[in-house]
Design a protein around this nucleic acid. Structure first.
Length: 468
DNA sequence: TTAGGGGTATAA
DNA sequence: TTATACCCCTAA
């Protein structure tokens, strides 16, 4: 296995897994208001993106979201600045605007976020930066945008240089932080990291991953897919060795055949997968190189499965992850802030700069953009292996850059694959958020036409099944 | 919003 | 008949 790391694309892939893992840890820390740990995880991520990383489409949004959280996290610190010398909340807004631009959706959510910009003013007033508060007030709330008299109140407070008003005191920034976390988790729930999934589900997961790939290929016509049964068998045996899967390949075949006989509804899902497989091949001049390593073959398959179609056609030259983010964010670190002495800030010692968050970091980040850019451009034709199935198994409710519905959602509810999938979501949801948080679980997985009560009932039945 | 009781429809 | 999925209702 040691030699495997030297294979092209391997480090990128592993870095991606690590990125996903620490993103998840960062979000957990944020959720439990452990902001110290959050900052540590953020720094780990910041350091990680210096290395080449497998940057398929959702990597970009993940990085953006971490950036957003990081900026929100520091929103109440007066001396912190992110890129372009913006305050953290301004940066957060800008980051979100970038997400909107890049995904061409979420306009309503942008408005929602803009309405939260009163917090910038409140933070400034709280820190007695009245000049800045005034500037922000005029910048974000031009004439005629006074909602519920807030603007007038703030203008008055700024004029009187009064920072102890109850509105200012009672506004809890920590609550806002959690709101913002809810906000983005709802927009783009991070799938469970592959590394955790492997730990939790072990061979069961890999079995089903391969089962779905196999199902997709099995029913596909020979002209449009060039993955043969033999190749799949090779892939399966390789992966089974790595993941210690004991189920023989023939069991997969049997499962698929059984499903095919039982289900006609599955066609819809498979068509969707087929479509993507062929699109991927189109991009690669329709050829799957004959004697590629088996792992690469699997990566092709899941590349097709995982990529939302809209994302496939990114702007020319915009293949990078950090690279493209750097373009819009200006110079500086991607995730971590740097701290500055405000011109009107009285205390020089207030710049408690993290040793890593200095200009060298920013240089490093700039280097990282190049490193990632270079490698990610190639990534499109190279892709990764099993991890993409991670997303397949735990789909994200929001498909960035693609307005299409989840193919699963158009399947009849009693279709076995859907049931299996939904049961998996319920199981994962309970594992991740705990039994009883049905509303949360409903929101975190792309259930369609399911209420929290349905999910609760489903879990009830599943538990009963376990007992009997 | 959730837990839990209980009813109905459906398929085996 | 039984198991299962889903639905509805009510209390907390």
């Amino acid at each position: 296995m040691a030699a495997a790391v030297q294979q092209p694309g391997c480090e990128e892939l592993i870095n991606r897994w690590i990125f996903d893992f620490y993103s998840s840890r960062a979000v957990d820390a944020f959720r439990s208001a452990d902001y110290g740990s959050f900052a540590q995880f953020r720094d780990l991520l910041e350091a990680l993106v210096v290395r080449p990383i497998d940057g398929r489409s959702d990597m970009k949004i993940k990085l953006r979201l971490m950036q957003f959280l990081s900026q929100i996290n520091d929103g109440d610190k007066p001396d912190v600045r992110f890129q372009n010398h913006l305050t953290p909340l301004e940066s957060a807004l800008k980051t979100f605007e970038d997400i909107c631009t890049e995904t061409e959706v979420l306009q309503n959510d942008l408005e929602h976020l803009k309405s939260e910009m009163f917090l910038v003013v409140i933070v400034c007033i709280k820190n007695e930066q009245f000049q800045k508060a005034g500037d922000m007030l005029h910048k974000y709330f031009p004439k005629g945008t006074d909602s519920a008299g807030k603007k007038k109140l703030f203008e008055d407070l700024i004029k009187r240089r009064y920072s102890r008003h109850t509105v200012i005191k009672s506004t809890s920034y920590s609550e806002f932080k959690q709101d913002m976390l809810d906000f983005i988790e709802k927009l783009y729930p991070l799938p469970e990291p592959f590394l955790l999934k492997v730990r939790l589900f072990g061979s069961y997961t890999i079995f089903w991953i391969l089962y779905y790939i196999f199902s997709a290929v099995e029913t596909h016509s020979a002209e449009t897919t060039q993955l043969s049964l033999n190749r799949l068998r090779t892939v399966y045996l390789e992966l089974a060795k790595i993941f210690s899967v004991s189920a023989p390949f023939s069991q997969l075949e049997e499962e698929v055949q059984k499903e095919a006989e039982e289900e006609s509804g599955i066609d819809l899902e498979l068509n969707e997968l087929d479509l993507r497989l062929s699109e991927t091949q189109d991009e690669e001049n329709g050829s799957v190189a004959g004697e590629r390593a088996s792992q690469e073959q699997s990566s092709r398959a899941d590349h097709g499965i995982d990529q939302p179609e809209g994302q496939e056609k990114e702007r020319p030259g915009d293949h990078t992850v950090t690279g493209s983010i750097m373009e819009t964010s200006g110079s500086g670190s991607i995730l971590a802030p740097y701290q500055v002495r405000e011109v009107n800030s009285a205390t020089p010692e207030s710049t408690n700069v993290h040793p890593l968050e200095n200009s060298k970091r920013r240089e490093d980040a700039a280097v990282s953009a190049i490193t990632v850019a270079q490698l990610v451009i190639e990534e499109d034709s190279q892709s990764s292996d099993m991890e993409a199935n991670d997303s397949q198994q735990t789909p994200s409710p929001l498909k960035i850059g693609s307005s299409e519905d989840n193919p699963l959602q158009s399947l009849p509810m009693n279709s076995t694959p859907v049931r299996k999938k939904q049961s998996d979501w319920v199981r994962q949801g309970v594992a991740r958020y705990g039994e009883g948080r049905w509303e949360k679980i409903k929101n975190m997985f792309p259930f369609k036409g399911r209420t929290a009560v349905n999910i609760k009932d489903r879990w009830r039945t599943m538990k009963k099944q376990k007992f009997t």
